[in-house]
Design a binder for these strands. Structure first.
Length: 838
DNA sequence: ATCTCCCGCCATATG
DNA sequence: CATATGGCGGGAGAT
């Protein structure tokens, strides 16, 4: 067999390929891969490539997992035939059998084979070069296919191009940073909002609306972002970089990054193909929904998804809505950390002037490209241009021409700014990398831990809430799947309870914040601490989704999730070092004690939770948000929530209701971008608030920023609550992150920053309130539940808050009535969504 | 029929 | 100019 060697890239005939396969037993391809493969593939060929151990333990697992399902189908069993050593004589049938079969030639499988060749975490020492020719040959595929894989890997910075036929393999070392950068980029791009918009639009679509809605949307976002960003780079990466950086559009790469961003900013980290395609297309222009274009986009997304699936970053699932089942993907990769460093990443930690680089090819890594649009225009190639062109012409996107398109630029609004300021960010990132080494999970944990304090804090805040959108419209899509709890960061085991609120579905929670100006806290200090309130206050709410099923179960998820329980949390993974707890942590701990009640199982991704569906509120805790103020609010964007909302709500259609009377203006003032509230919310009694004790707030960052303390924010919260806009619990979150923000104020902008903060727990982030500005609100109309009704259960969900806090952990949603502590109930409409993994 | 998505033509970019 | 890249969409296998 050594034969093949030469290089024709052509795959050709089955003949050659046969060899490998045969080995496999009937079922699993996987099997092939792993055990066999290695030997097979590697052996003859060049060695260097696979330096050390191509197979890491993890990789094996992956393989297995991934492979498993499909394999089954192997009914064919051509295997046997092939098994026989040579296929010399094949009859027609046999011949066919020997044929690979479409599945065997799938990009996902090919990608597995490709990945199997390299270690997830290659030692720096080695030079892991990838020679495209060789790989193609060894894997028996056309070169074209390799490009598909490599391009996606490149988007994640798992490989980088060195030269013409060569790429350098970096493995997953950069993944954390990359994801962080992508998340940030996604936030800055307001993807969450875009997602919501799209869903909303769909929803409306169903009903009559339509019409102008689009415009509305556009405007609302209008401002919008969009804008694309070009390829997001990491700082450290490209060392050698070699000559090239082809600056072209790199569409597949960019598309891949954007796709990933969608997951990272979505609360239920679930993205349907349809929505992704629309966003990716539409960034530029919302309008033309060209059908063919849409189809093409979908095709590409499948290609990308296959690679990401092989990397185990996402998993295919189906979301069942009323309309039927739609393909979607769920993020199964590591949680992204908050960022801290993130900031740095962008700009490069050093000071490099980001934008400018423009022409500068290579070099600098990082940031250069990020968000060109925003800052002003920057580079020539900006996609935006392209768009224009397209519009004009059609296809030829190529136009690279000019430097930015003016148009787009305009669109972009604010956000950008905030981003840069990152001055503070300097915090040392630290350890993160180490984390990486381990299993992802572990990693996650570690990270958090390391930062412990921070994280904790962050997480907490997040907890805060998620407001629900007014139901009205939105529902259309979102599945609300529960978010996987997984999100929750393990690390805080203790703390986590607090988080509960987030609950998986997008229920909202309320939490009290503490208004006080606080500030001061030093940096990391946990910005928010929670304190247990004695009672009443809180209430949890939650809607349940009745059936939502999500099984997010994957192993990983569990881990994360587990955190909730103190016990669990610690368990396996690492419990992180608790070691240094910061004060914050301590706080947490205390809280944890409380937790008992509070806790909930939320996390568990599992179903169980579903069943219970309830979430509890941690009542009693306050969360100080201080910082939030800064614009963070904007952060809310959370489209997510929207998604959440969508969940099952059925019941009500309350139209309008969703909208809250608030004046938009007021809200805005606050900076809160959007928020949706359900009628219930309104109800809150102010008192409740009062009850809540305040916490000491710690403001995080305050230190560095100097940002103003946020009194305002606190005020805001207060105000809102009193007003009724926000359920008592809710609060505007402040993110530590915010800090960066310069004072900016613009509400809008703010948003992203906040997100960053949140950590991994994405979940947390999700829960936030959002406020819409007027425009925004408008958007949300009362929706009627599309679905006729959901079973009651679903409807029931809404919860109101229960009052009694107490009940320990469990509050059922239903219960309520009682206390009102929480008066503000949120209602979340839920739509039923089911996710089925396939 | 719909969902996936492989295949490979062919325009471009690079060398 | 020869290759290396990679956009794109037809159309077929999988469900």
């Amino acid at each position: 067999l050594g034969a093949q060697e030469n290089h024709s890239s052509e795959p050709h005939r089955s003949v050659l390929k046969t060899p490998l396969k045969q080995a496999a037993t009937s079922h699993s391809v996987l099997m092939e891969l792993q055990p066999d493969c290695q030997p097979l593939t590697t052996p003859p060929k060049p060695k260097e490539i696979l330096p050390a151990d191509p197979w890491t333990p993890t990789s094996n697992l992956k393989m297995l997992m991934s492979a498993a399902s499909p394999e089954i189908r192997s009914r064919e069993q051509r295997r046997e035939l092939s098994n026989n050593p040579r296929e010399e004589h094949l009859s027609g049938d046999e011949y066919e059998k020997s044929q690979p079969s479409r599945k065997e030639k799938s990009l996902g499988l090919l990608c597995h084979k490709f990945l199997a060749r390299y270690p997830d975490y290659p030692s720096t020492a080695e030079n892991n070069y990838i020679c495209l020719d060789e790989v193609a040959e060894e894997l028996n595929v056309e070169r074209r296919r390799i490009y598909d894989i490599v391009n996606v890997l490149e988007s994640l910075h798992m490989v980088s191009r060195l030269a013409k036929n060569r790429y350098a393999w970096h493995g997953r070392h950069n993944l954390p940073k990359t994801l962080q950068a992508l998340k940030k980029a996604g936030e800055e791009n307001k993807y969450t909002q875009q997602i919501q918009m799209i869903k909303k639009r769909e929803y409306e679509h169903e009903f009559d609306f339509d019409g102008e809605r689009n415009e509305e949307m556009a405007r609302s976002f209008g401002s919008n972002e969009h804008s694309e960003m070009s390829f997001v780079e990491l700082p450290g990466m490209e060392f050698r970089a070699a000559s090239v950086n082809s600056r072209k559009d790199k569409s597949l790469r960019v598309m891949s990054q954007k796709f990933v961003m969608l997951f990272l900013v979505s609360t239920p980290q679930l993205v349907s193909l349809e929505v992704a395609a629309k966003i990716l297309i539409g960034e530029d222009q919302l309008e033309d929904l060209d059908k063919s274009k849409f189809k093409t986009k979908i095709r590409r997304l499948y290609d990308i998804a296959n690679v990401l699936s092989s990397l185990e970053l996402i998993k295919k699932v189906h979301v069942t809505e009323e309309r039927g089942r739609k393909p979607a993907f769920k993020w199964t990769g590591p949680e992204v950390l908050p960022n801290i460093q993130g900031t740095k990443l962008e700009t490069t930690s050093t000071t490099s002037p980001p934008t400018i680089s423009e022409s500068i090819p290579s070099k600098e890594q990082c940031s250069k490209n990020l968000f060109p649009s925003r800052g002003k225009q920057n580079f020539t190639r900006h996609p935006s241009l392209i768009k224009l062109v397209k519009s004009i012409e059609n296809d030829r996107r190529k136009i690279q021409s000019a430097p930015t398109s003016p148009v787009k630029i305009s669109t972009s609004t604010d956000q950008n700014i905030s981003a840069f300021p990152s001055q503070m960010a300097q915090v040392p990132v630290i350890a993160k990398h180490q984390l990486e080494g381990q299993s992802r999970k572990a990693k996650e944990m570690n990270m958090k831990l390391s930062r412990s304090a921070l994280d904790c804090n962050l997480s907490l805040p997040e907890v805060v809430l998620k407001p629900q959108p007014p139901r009205p419209a939105a529902p259309s899509d979102q599945p609300a799947l529960p978010q996987p709890l997984g999100v929750c960061p393990p690390s805080h085991g203790p703390v986590s309870p607090v988080i509960l609120p987030q609950t998986h579905s997008g229920v909202s929670y309320a939490i009290y914040l503490h208004p006080s100006p606080a500030h001061t806290v030093t940096t990391y200090s946990p910005s928010f601490m929670l304190q247990p309130l004695p009672c009443t206050n809180v209430t949890g709410i939650k809607s349940i989704n009745s059936k939502v099923v999500n099984k997010i179960t994957t192993e990983e998820g569990d881990n994360q999730i587990s955190t909730d329980d103190p016990t669990k949390s610690l368990t396996a993974k690492e419990r992180p070092n608790i070691k240094s707890e910061t004060s914050s942590q301590r706080c947490l701990k205390r809280s944890s004690a409380l937790q008992e009640n509070t806790l909930i199982k939320r996390c568990r991704s599992d179903e169980e939770s579903l069943d219970t569906a309830l979430t509890f509120f941690p009542s009693g805790y306050l969360i100080p948000l201080t910082q939030c103020t800064h614009g963070n609010n904007a952060g809310f964007s959370d489209e997510e929530k929207a998604g959440i909302c969508s969940l099952q709500h059925t019941t009500y259609s309350s139209p309008i209701a969703g909208v809250i009377p608030m004046t938009a203006s007021e809200l805005k003032a606050v900076n809160i971008p959007a928020f949706h509230i359900t009628p219930f919310n309104i109800m809150l009694s102010p008192t409740s608030i009062a009850a809540a004790p305040v916490l000491s707030s710690s403001s995080l960052n305050s230190g560095n920023t100097g940002s103003a303390p946020n009194p305002s924010s606190s005020v805001l919260n207060f105000t809102l609550q009193h007003v009724g806009l926000i359920p008592a619990g809710v609060q505007v979150p402040a993110n530590p992150v915010l800090q960066h923000l310069p004072v900016s104020s613009q509400p809008e902008n703010v948003s992203h920053s906040s997100e960053n903060v949140n950590l991994q727990e994405e979940k947390v982030s999700k829960n936030r309130l959002q406020l819409l500005d007027r425009g925004g609100l408008r958007g949300w109309e009362p929706c009627v539940p599309k679905e006729p009704q959901v079973p009651q259960a679903a409807t029931e969900n809404f919860f109101r808050t229960p009052g009694g806090p107490n009940t320990g952990p469990s509050l059922s949603a239903n219960s309520d009535g009682t206390n009102r502590t929480f008066q503000g109930t949120l209602y979340i409409p839920q739509r039923k969504l089911e996710v089925s993994e396939d």
